[in-house]
Amino acid sequence: MAEWFRTFRQGIAIENPLTVLMIGLCATLAVSTQLKNAVFMGLAVVFVITMSNVLVSVFRKHIPSEVRIPIFIVVIASFVTIVDLVMKAFVPSVYQVLGIWIPLIVVNCMILGRAEAFAYNNRPLLSIADGMGMGTGFWLVMVILAAIRELFGTGKIVWFGSTLIALPSGYEPPSLLLLFPGAFLVFGFMIAGSRWLNERSQARAEARACRR
């Protein structure tokens, strides 16, 4: 169980797919204009990565290594199709905005990468932890990025028509944050920030080790 949680936590912080490994960037930057879209996109990715990790891991002994990549892609593509149709049916307003990003989850390097690097060599239970950890790490960074961009770019955060948080009325939002350069700029600062956090926690761990 301890191993399970360690694998889960690794995906969120030390091996965060977005700020540390830098994979699966495209969707994050494009979708993060609104908190609502980022939340649903992140959920779709968590679902696909967990399910594909489980399936790949369960059948890992039966998948010949020569054709493993096409097999992984087909597995991922089937789960993405499920997400595609479910979202179209139940949250059409979000689906309209996400558009091409749903089919593009197939080629999100993060999902294929985890199937190849983790699920293909590990037990199903651990693969679930890895998928959920990586997915949650992805989701968290994307939601934070979207919250920053929506809050400071429009002055308020809107969730299906109701305003969650609003800045004081004198605030004049710079629309630059909502346009595409805003995503690059904010994300650059976020990587620097996560580097600082990781360095600090490493330094603390070392200091603790010295004291013993």
Binding site: L176, F180, P181, A183, F184, L185, G188, A192
Partner: peptide
């Protein structure tokens, strides 16, 4: 702290500003 990728992202942001 900005060496490598963070500054690359900020540069990309400025480049994409041209495309606006």
């Amino acid at each position: 702290l900005f060496k490598g990728t963070p500054i690359a992202f900020i540069t990309a942001g400025l480049l994409s500003l041209a495309y606006v």
